[in-house]
Design a binder for these strands. Sequence first.
DNA 1: TATGGTATAATTGTATACAATGGTCACTGT
DNA 2: ACAGTGACCATTGTATACAATTATACCATA
Lengths: 228, 228
Amino acid sequence: MPLIEMSQFIEARTLGDETARLVREHIVYGNYAPGSRLSEAEVASVLGVSRTCVREAFAILEAEGLVRRMRNRYTQIVQFTPRDAREVMQLRSAIEGLCARIVVAEHRIPLEELERCLAGIERAILSNPVDRRGYVEHDLGFHRALVNASGNTHALRHWSLLEAQIHAMLFLVLEDLDVTVESTIGLHRALLETLRGGSPEDAEQALSQHGLSVIHCIAKRLEKENVL
Amino acid sequence: MPLIEMSQFIEARTLGDETARLVREHIVYGNYAPGSRLSEAEVASVLGVSRTCVREAFAILEAEGLVRRMRNRYTQIVQFTPRDAREVMQLRSAIEGLCARIVVAEHRIPLEELERCLAGIERAILSNPVDRRGYVEHDLGFHRALVNASGNTHALRHWSLLEAQIHAMLFLVLEDLDVTVESTIGLHRALLETLRGGSPEDAEQALSQHGLSVIHCIAKRLEKENVL
DNA sequence: TATGGTATAATTGTATACAATGGTCACTGT
DNA sequence: ACAGTGACCATTGTATACAATTATACCATA
């Protein structure tokens, strides 16, 4: 019996795609300050690729809403305003509400995966209450699992675009995030209970509310950020 | 008094952006058959630009979900399955529901604009009942006006991505669209009445349902399309 | 005939060269 | 001193050249 040809499953990537991925990582992890300018030549030399690939990457990232290319001038990291935070979180809530409804209606709740994310959140908070990075990852993982379980690939695509922006915003306000085991775990456990026991409409409402409830704290923090 | 400097307002575009725009037009108007392959060199020569710009355009269009680049092989127009239609319309419904709720809650219903779109729909159907192109444009215009009026620019961005895909799908099934003045105008008038008189929740529900109701007919038609 | 391998063509991927644009800054004239 | 001008520099925009990969056609062989 021949070995499975893995090459079919490993998606081929061009240097342009790979560059986009690397820069995207830097953006969502807050390594580039919002509003700062990226030079094509500099990124190219740092990554050891040609400017052509970097330009392709920038074009992709602009389509994803992570950078803005000022034609004939420069491209800069998008700087999220409190308004952006509100709008993005509203949109996210709508999508997650939709997916929650589907997931409950079609009995596709990914219980094990959600539990694993909850455990991850708990572990991240307990192991290092100061460093919120692990928390952010697992929290987003929880929601991603839900969206993914809905089976709506287009919803997942759009949610992923929002995730990158949310991730970037959260990493900006990491220090101000007041996450305690009780509140966060409590909130997510409540969500899980609604998913298990509630109607599709209950689930939609719950997820929608959950997303909206975070808007205030992020927006307020960004307010200060932008004043600086 | 000096003339207003228009150059500030006309957004600068690169050839890559412009190429993306042109190809996008062709896709959403159904000039390229779904699944057909686009050659970089051919597009470049037709438009009289270099392959570099075409590649940038393809990268953008892939990020928008309109083409798929098969690395080292070719890039092809995405072919929507009935499942895609369902997923896209579900997502669209969720976003429009959100925007309808906002618009009603914040008393920002763009009445004149919506009325103008309704008139446009009516005119398009009456003037040429066979050619549905005008109808599609004005129908989408109605919904775009609503999303736009919500003031949520991110919702508008994502909705626009969906619009392109929906536009492409509708132009595929134009002949099968059975739109009569009574049904279409009636449905949209009902929406308008709910927006004017109903609660934000009523509006959300109405818009959400409206979008979902069209899924069936599009999906069924695409089923046949894909069999061919 | 079917299979498989090789040379060749066609196409995409990447790098580089050159053009064009915008900004900086010294210089000039009032 | 200050506004305006122009040369220069840095950066982006575009085209072309070349490398790498994939597809095709043909021939040899079983």
